[in-house]
Simulated scan of single mutants.
Amino acid sequence: MDNDSVATAYTTVDGDFVHELEIKRSRFITYLRRVESEVDARALVAELRKKHFDARHHCSAFILGADRMAMRSNDDGEPSGTAGIPMLDALAKRETDAGRTDLSDVSAVVVRYFGGILLGAGGLVRAYSESVSSALDAAPLLRRERMRILGLDADHTAAGRLENDLRSAGVQVLGTDYGPSLATLRVALNDDAAILAAFHDRLATLTAGASNAENLGIEWVDVR
Protein backbone atom coordinates (compact mmCIF):
# COMPACT_ATOMS: atom_id res chain seq x y z
CA MET A 1 0.00 0.00 0.00
CA ASP A 2 2.53 2.59 -1.05
CA ASN A 3 1.88 6.08 -2.33
CA ASP A 4 2.02 4.91 -5.94
CA SER A 5 -0.94 2.55 -5.55
CA VAL A 6 -3.67 3.22 -8.10
CA ALA A 7 -6.44 2.37 -5.65
CA THR A 8 -7.56 5.15 -3.30
CA ALA A 9 -10.16 3.11 -1.38
CA TYR A 10 -11.33 -0.43 -0.79
CA THR A 11 -13.58 -2.49 1.49
CA THR A 12 -12.49 -4.96 4.16
CA VAL A 13 -13.97 -6.88 7.08
CA ASP A 14 -14.09 -5.18 10.45
CA GLY A 15 -12.11 -7.63 12.59
CA ASP A 16 -12.99 -11.33 12.99
CA PHE A 17 -16.28 -13.02 12.17
CA VAL A 18 -17.58 -16.62 12.37
CA HIS A 19 -20.57 -18.14 10.58
CA GLU A 20 -21.78 -21.75 10.33
CA LEU A 21 -23.93 -23.67 7.84
CA GLU A 22 -25.05 -27.29 7.90
CA ILE A 23 -25.44 -28.89 4.48
CA LYS A 24 -26.47 -32.54 4.27
CA ARG A 25 -25.13 -33.20 7.76
CA SER A 26 -21.73 -31.63 7.04
CA ARG A 27 -20.82 -28.60 9.13
CA PHE A 28 -19.20 -25.70 7.25
CA ILE A 29 -17.75 -23.16 9.69
CA THR A 30 -16.50 -20.00 7.98
CA TYR A 31 -13.96 -17.74 9.66
CA LEU A 32 -13.33 -14.28 8.21
CA ARG A 33 -10.44 -12.17 9.40
CA ARG A 34 -8.96 -8.88 8.34
CA VAL A 35 -5.31 -9.49 7.48
CA GLU A 36 -2.44 -7.35 6.17
CA SER A 37 -0.05 -9.99 4.84
CA GLU A 38 0.20 -13.53 3.53
CA VAL A 39 1.85 -14.45 6.82
CA ASP A 40 -1.26 -13.27 8.68
CA ALA A 41 -3.53 -15.24 6.33
CA ARG A 42 -1.56 -18.45 6.75
CA ALA A 43 -1.42 -17.91 10.51
CA LEU A 44 -5.22 -18.04 10.59
CA VAL A 45 -5.19 -21.42 8.85
CA ALA A 46 -2.60 -22.73 11.30
CA GLU A 47 -4.62 -21.41 14.24
CA LEU A 48 -7.77 -23.14 13.05
CA ARG A 49 -6.00 -26.43 12.35
CA LYS A 50 -5.15 -26.51 16.03
CA LYS A 51 -8.57 -25.37 17.19
CA HIS A 52 -10.46 -27.75 14.89
CA PHE A 53 -7.89 -30.56 14.88
CA ASP A 54 -10.64 -33.14 14.35
CA ALA A 55 -12.13 -31.51 11.23
CA ARG A 56 -11.74 -33.14 7.81
CA HIS A 57 -10.79 -29.99 5.86
CA HIS A 58 -9.54 -26.45 6.48
CA CYS A 59 -9.99 -24.78 3.08
CA SER A 60 -8.86 -21.21 2.59
CA ALA A 61 -8.75 -18.15 0.36
CA PHE A 62 -7.43 -14.64 0.78
CA ILE A 63 -7.07 -11.33 -1.05
CA LEU A 64 -4.46 -8.72 -0.12
CA GLY A 65 -3.64 -5.14 -1.00
CA ALA A 66 -5.60 -2.10 -2.07
CA ASP A 67 -5.06 -3.14 -5.69
CA ARG A 68 -5.98 -6.79 -4.85
CA MET A 69 -2.85 -8.08 -6.60
CA ALA A 70 -2.38 -11.03 -4.20
CA MET A 71 -5.09 -13.70 -4.39
CA ARG A 72 -4.58 -17.29 -3.20
CA SER A 73 -6.72 -20.32 -2.38
CA ASN A 74 -6.27 -23.87 -1.12
CA ASP A 75 -8.60 -26.90 -1.37
CA ASP A 76 -6.96 -28.73 1.55
CA GLY A 77 -7.82 -32.21 0.34
CA GLU A 78 -11.17 -31.50 -1.28
CA PRO A 79 -11.34 -32.37 -5.02
CA SER A 80 -9.36 -29.82 -7.02
CA GLY A 81 -11.28 -26.62 -7.71
CA THR A 82 -14.27 -27.44 -5.48
CA ALA A 83 -13.39 -25.43 -2.38
CA GLY A 84 -10.62 -22.80 -2.54
CA ILE A 85 -11.56 -21.31 -5.90
CA PRO A 86 -15.30 -20.97 -5.10
CA MET A 87 -14.31 -19.34 -1.81
CA LEU A 88 -11.96 -16.93 -3.59
CA ASP A 89 -14.64 -16.10 -6.15
CA ALA A 90 -17.07 -15.31 -3.34
CA LEU A 91 -14.54 -12.86 -1.91
CA ALA A 92 -13.43 -11.34 -5.21
CA LYS A 93 -16.93 -10.86 -6.65
CA ARG A 94 -18.54 -9.64 -3.46
CA GLU A 95 -20.54 -6.46 -4.06
CA THR A 96 -20.87 -3.84 -1.35
CA ASP A 97 -24.04 -1.83 -0.80
CA ALA A 98 -22.61 0.74 -3.22
CA GLY A 99 -22.13 -1.92 -5.91
CA ARG A 100 -18.34 -2.06 -5.58
CA THR A 101 -16.32 -5.26 -5.93
CA ASP A 102 -13.26 -4.15 -4.00
CA LEU A 103 -13.11 -6.42 -0.95
CA SER A 104 -9.50 -6.95 0.14
CA ASP A 105 -7.17 -7.55 3.09
CA VAL A 106 -9.41 -10.45 4.04
CA SER A 107 -8.80 -14.14 4.72
CA ALA A 108 -11.55 -16.77 4.69
CA VAL A 109 -11.15 -20.27 6.12
CA VAL A 110 -13.94 -22.83 5.93
CA VAL A 111 -13.62 -25.67 8.40
CA ARG A 112 -15.60 -28.72 7.28
CA TYR A 113 -16.78 -31.54 9.50
CA PHE A 114 -17.86 -34.33 7.15
CA GLY A 115 -21.37 -35.55 7.85
CA GLY A 116 -21.21 -38.84 5.98
CA ILE A 117 -23.06 -37.78 2.82
CA LEU A 118 -21.02 -37.12 -0.34
CA LEU A 119 -21.95 -33.84 -1.98
CA GLY A 120 -20.30 -34.36 -5.37
CA ALA A 121 -18.18 -31.77 -7.13
CA GLY A 122 -21.07 -29.43 -7.90
CA GLY A 123 -22.43 -29.70 -4.38
CA LEU A 124 -19.05 -28.89 -2.87
CA VAL A 125 -18.63 -25.83 -5.08
CA ARG A 126 -22.05 -24.54 -4.02
CA ALA A 127 -21.43 -25.36 -0.36
CA TYR A 128 -18.09 -23.56 -0.10
CA SER A 129 -19.30 -20.59 -2.13
CA GLU A 130 -22.47 -20.28 -0.05
CA SER A 131 -20.51 -20.61 3.19
CA VAL A 132 -18.33 -17.60 2.42
CA SER A 133 -21.15 -15.57 0.84
CA SER A 134 -23.42 -16.15 3.85
CA ALA A 135 -20.64 -15.13 6.22
CA LEU A 136 -20.05 -11.93 4.24
CA ASP A 137 -23.79 -11.18 4.32
CA ALA A 138 -23.65 -11.06 8.10
CA ALA A 139 -20.11 -9.77 8.72
CA PRO A 140 -19.43 -6.09 9.53
CA LEU A 141 -17.52 -4.35 6.75
CA LEU A 142 -15.71 -1.02 6.57
CA ARG A 143 -14.12 1.24 4.00
CA ARG A 144 -10.43 2.13 3.93
CA GLU A 145 -9.40 5.30 2.15
CA ARG A 146 -6.13 7.07 1.40
CA MET A 147 -6.56 10.36 3.22
CA ARG A 148 -4.60 13.50 3.99
CA ILE A 149 -3.63 13.66 7.67
CA LEU A 150 -3.43 17.05 9.35
CA GLY A 151 -2.18 17.96 12.83
CA LEU A 152 -3.91 20.78 14.68
CA ASP A 153 -2.40 22.34 17.81
CA ALA A 154 -4.73 23.72 20.47
CA ASP A 155 -4.63 24.72 24.12
CA HIS A 156 -5.57 21.91 26.48
CA THR A 157 -8.68 23.81 27.54
CA ALA A 158 -9.85 24.26 23.93
CA ALA A 159 -8.95 20.85 22.51
CA GLY A 160 -12.09 19.02 23.65
CA ARG A 161 -14.44 21.66 22.27
CA LEU A 162 -12.52 21.82 18.97
CA GLU A 163 -12.68 18.02 18.63
CA ASN A 164 -16.45 18.04 19.25
CA ASP A 165 -16.98 20.87 16.76
CA LEU A 166 -14.97 19.07 14.08
CA ARG A 167 -16.80 15.76 14.63
CA SER A 168 -20.13 17.58 14.47
CA ALA A 169 -19.05 19.02 11.12
CA GLY A 170 -18.37 15.51 9.79
CA VAL A 171 -14.58 15.67 10.05
CA GLN A 172 -12.89 12.38 10.96
CA VAL A 173 -10.81 12.97 14.09
CA LEU A 174 -8.28 10.16 14.58
CA GLY A 175 -7.29 11.16 18.09
CA THR A 176 -5.81 13.82 20.34
CA ASP A 177 -2.34 13.75 21.88
CA TYR A 178 -1.78 15.91 24.96
CA GLY A 179 1.71 17.35 25.29
CA PRO A 180 3.22 19.44 28.10
CA SER A 181 1.82 22.71 26.77
CA LEU A 182 -0.43 21.93 23.78
CA ALA A 183 -2.79 19.25 22.54
CA THR A 184 -2.47 18.00 18.95
CA LEU A 185 -5.53 16.74 17.11
CA ARG A 186 -5.02 14.41 14.14
CA VAL A 187 -7.72 14.64 11.48
CA ALA A 188 -8.20 12.82 8.18
CA LEU A 189 -9.59 14.46 5.04
CA ASN A 190 -10.10 13.46 1.43
CA ASP A 191 -7.02 14.61 -0.45
CA ASP A 192 -8.93 17.10 -2.59
CA ALA A 193 -7.91 20.74 -2.97
CA ALA A 194 -11.45 22.09 -2.55
CA ILE A 195 -12.14 19.94 0.54
CA LEU A 196 -8.84 20.96 2.13
CA ALA A 197 -9.45 24.64 1.41
CA ALA A 198 -12.93 24.46 2.93
CA PHE A 199 -11.49 22.74 6.01
CA HIS A 200 -8.89 25.47 6.51
CA ASP A 201 -11.64 28.08 6.29
CA ARG A 202 -13.76 26.20 8.83
CA LEU A 203 -10.79 25.81 11.17
CA ALA A 204 -10.07 29.52 11.02
CA THR A 205 -13.69 30.23 11.93
CA LEU A 206 -13.79 27.73 14.80
CA THR A 207 -10.54 28.95 16.36
CA ALA A 208 -10.61 32.62 15.33
CA GLY A 209 -7.42 31.93 13.43
CA ALA A 210 -5.64 30.63 16.52
CA SER A 211 -4.91 27.13 15.14
CA ASN A 212 -3.06 26.09 12.00
CA ALA A 213 -3.12 22.70 10.28
CA GLU A 214 0.20 20.92 9.71
CA ASN A 215 0.40 18.45 6.83
CA LEU A 216 1.41 15.04 8.24
CA GLY A 217 1.21 13.13 4.95
CA ILE A 218 -1.05 10.48 3.42
CA GLU A 219 -2.24 7.37 5.29
CA TRP A 220 -4.78 4.59 4.90
CA VAL A 221 -7.67 5.29 7.28
CA ASP A 222 -10.58 3.14 8.41
CA VAL A 223 -13.83 4.92 7.60
CA ARG A 224 -16.72 3.49 9.62
Results as ranks from 00 to 15, higher is better:
Asp192Ala: 14
Tyr113Leu: 07
Phe62Gly: 04
Ala193Gln: 14
Leu206Trp: 03
Cys59Leu: 11
Arg68Asn: 01
Lys24Arg: 14
Ser37Gln: 09
Gly116Phe: 07
Thr82Asp: 01
Ala183Glu: 00
Val111Lys: 06
Ser104Asp: 00
Ser37Ala: 06
Arg126Gln: 07
Tyr178Asp: 08
Leu206Thr: 01
Phe28Trp: 07
Ile195His: 13
Ile29Trp: 06
Arg224Val: 14
Asn3Val: 13
Ala198Cys: 06
Asp165Leu: 15
Leu216His: 13
Val35Asp: 02
Gly115Tyr: 12
Arg144Ala: 01
Val221Thr: 07
Ala188Met: 12
Ile63Gln: 01
Leu150Ser: 09
Arg126Leu: 04
Val106Met: 07
Lys24Gly: 06
Val111Glu: 02
Ala139Gln: 05
Ala158Lys: 05
Arg68Gln: 08
Glu36Gln: 15
Gly179Met: 08
Met147Asn: 01
Arg167His: 07
Leu150Cys: 01
Gly84Lys: 03
Leu48Cys: 10
Glu22Cys: 03
Glu145Val: 03
Arg126Asn: 03
Phe17Trp: 15
Ala204His: 14
Ser60Phe: 05
Arg202Val: 01
Val221Asn: 04
Leu203Ser: 08
Thr176His: 09
Val132Ala: 04
Thr96Cys: 05
Leu152Glu: 06
Leu216Lys: 13
Glu214Thr: 15
Arg34Val: 03
Phe62Glu: 00
Leu166Arg: 07
Ser133Leu: 12
Ala66Glu: 00
Asp76Leu: 05
Ser168Phe: 11
Val125Leu: 07
Leu21Arg: 06
Thr12Pro: 03
Leu162Gly: 03
Ala135Arg: 03
Arg148Ile: 04
Leu189Tyr: 10
Leu48Val: 05
Asn164Thr: 12
Ala135Asp: 03
Lys51His: 05
Asp54Asn: 14
Trp220Glu: 09
Ser181Leu: 13
Ala139Asn: 02
Val173Glu: 00
Thr82Tyr: 06
Asp2Trp: 10
Met1Asp: 11
Val187His: 10
Asp97Ala: 15
Gly120Ala: 10
